[in-house]
Design a protein around this nucleic acid. Structure first.
Lengths: 360, 360
DNA sequence: GTGACAGATGATATCGGTCCCATTAAAGGA
DNA sequence: TCCTTTAATGGGACCGATATCATCTGTCAC
């Protein structure tokens, strides 16, 4: 036999190319099944289009090779990544986690995948994260209100993708908004305490001057103060103490500080159940009776508030439902090619009365 | 002028093609800057390779167009997605959230993005999620131990990607493992209570027969029971009650059930701080004094345990550090093309002594 | 028998980047 | 001066799917 290179053989050999991994591709499946790549693709995305006998051949090849389609390639071609971006201040907050949970659930049926980023309440980080997210070409973006840095807004407009702001109702929504008014939370809390007959009313929140800012929490405080002012009551017992995000410990130290500064305080609204629970614990340590000596209410209806003694009166927002609803809306929106008009949905809030408040 | 179509003009016009969106591509940038696509790509990924003057031209074009590179396309070409997959039982657990947090932090510098999936402790869901994740071609996979369904394991082996199991030390790790032994947690807890002189010792956990199974929690119980047995003590006060995942409320109801069934109980280990805190709250309601009447210890060192009265003795594992460490290991591993030998790292655990336990 | 039509499948271009190698210009060495 | 080396840039193939349109086969009505 000649030792000259044989063109014909060379042509049928796989070209070396860039291929390094031995992971099977759709081409391998198609060869093994003896069909075209397109048929394989159809079997996996819309099996009804393919004859059952062909389908079985393909599925067998898929199984034999352990083929897992590459969504990166699919996304590029179909221009649909199947990603929904979610930007949160933090994951270590049960309510935000609940939002993510609800969203995921709603998106699962339509086979969207959540792409989560969190900012630790840091605005610069927010912008960087947003750029990272956009580079993944999500089909929609969900974010917690508050973000209104100029650049971020501009990037969002340019992204040409549905934007949903959640967990707040911004005065100037970028596009859609689903949430509740944090300002109204504050006013509602103050109104509730006023209606119970209290006149020495205080509040616990984080200082807005810290490195990180909890914009939504500050909105609640603003509403709270406004309602007090409308009732012609002083706001000097509204304590902004320590840095965001708040925690049990924050509530404990802030409570002590407030009580020491204002010994005659009758009722306290904490910016979050976390602070409120911390306050109740500190009160126990100070031998102050809740609610006989001081009434306390919180916000967020965290599970722990139901379990402590006394159980915590709080303002409830159904964050999981909020996530679910957002997800459903997005699935509908993305299924139809029409661009719906911007919408703003208020999911409302509800006072949950428990034992930590006693009418004056 | 002729009204015949002019070929030359037509050739320079953009082809209609599939292009729908008007989002700028690298081609638009290159045209505007008067350079090749490759040069644009270099400016964005390795600016040192490009002459400053050229670089500036390109960056200006990028800014003018508001160009955001498409990582989907980039990933396909470079065969590097920049994704690390993370699979967790749930996000609504502070310790798992802390893992995600630590991981994110470690991955940020190397510009990897976490792809999070969670299973709600559901094995079937786990498998579906894993497939979804693999289709995104992550460069590594991090998962909580326990997952050993046949199919899932097979898929992982086939994925040809580093696998790290965390938050447990499986007896047969798939590849790498970073975590602690839940079994040892149980034994350590029992040993600690034995050393304090208790002989009537109980525990609170979820039933493993429920719809969802907390494999790690059950491991802790197994270790706890083994240590009791070694001390020739009965295990009949180890209560498996209700369904996973546990919660404050779970702890409260399980505590009451246990105390009613075993009134002479002296000390209790709860599978999680959540249960333990719930138990302390229920004890308060039952007018049982902690620790005078009953000692309680938990696991996980959740923030709330530090704040309640009495503060909770617990077993601490640094989950955030665990995430950080995992992330660092992955970054190193992916930077070098070598495949390191499988490693198992025990991050250990630590008893945190607080007021909820009093020696007998 | 034949044309129209629907159903099943295939061929090929394309998505938007990066890899690899070629080309050109500038710098340095004998 | 000429050759080699290095730096900067460009050209074109390619990553692995899907969109789109073409082809082929068989059925049915007239």
């Amino acid at each position: 036999m000649s030792r000259l290179p044989r063109e014909t053989t060379a042509a049928t050999e796989p070209k070396p190319g860039r291929r390094a991994s031995q992971r099977p591709t759709i081409r391998d499946v198609s060869r093994l099944a003896g069909v075209s790549r397109m048929t394989v693709s159809r079997v996996l995305s819309d099996p009804e289009l393919v004859l059952p006998t062909t389908r079985d051949k393909v599925l067998k090849a898929v199984a034999d090779l352990g083929y897992v389609p590459d969504k990166t390639a699919g996304s590029l071609s179909s221009r649909r990544t199947g990603f929904i971006a979610l930007m949160l201040p933090t994951l270590t907050n049960a309510n935000f986690a609940a939002v993510a949970h609800g969203l995921t659930e709603a998106l699962r049926e339509a086979n969207y995948h959540l792409l989560i980023a969190y900012t630790d309440y840091d605005m610069a980080e927010e912008e960087r994260q947003l750029l990272n997210l956009l580079a993944r070409r999500p089909e929609a973006i969900v974010l917690t209100g508050a973000m209104h840095r100029r650049n971020a807004s501009r990037m969002l407009m340019a992204a040409d993708v549905p934007v949903v702001e959640i967990a707040d109702l911004p005065s100037q929504p970028i596009e859609h908004a689903i949430g509740f008014s944090n300002y109204q939370v504050g006013r509602t809390a103050a109104r509730y305490l006023l209606d119970r007959g209290f006149t020495r009313i205080g509040a616990l929140a984080a200082s807005p001057d810290g490195e990180v800012t909890d914009h939504r929490g500050e909105e609640r405080m603003r509403g709270f103060e406004d309602e007090l002012r409308l009732a012609r009551l002083p706001t000097d017992a509204v304590l902004r103490h320590g840095s965001a995000p708040v925690s049990f410990h924050h509530g404990a130290t802030a409570f002590r500080a407030l009580v020491e500064a204002q010994p005659d305080i009758e009722a306290i609204f904490a910016v979050s159940d976390l602070s409120a629970v911390g306050a109740v614990m500190e009160a126990q340590r100070m031998n102050l009776r809740i609610p006989e000596d001081i009434s306390i209410m919180g916000f967020g209806d965290f599970e722990i508030g139901r379990e402590i003694n006394p159980a915590l009166t709080t303002i409830h927002v159904d964050f999981r439902a909020l996530g679910l609803r957002t997800g459903k809306m997005l699935v509908d929106m993305l299924a139809s090619d029409a661009t719906p008009a911007p919408s703003v949905v208020d999911v409302g809030l509800r006072i949950v009365e428990r034992a930590s408040i006693k009418d004056k």
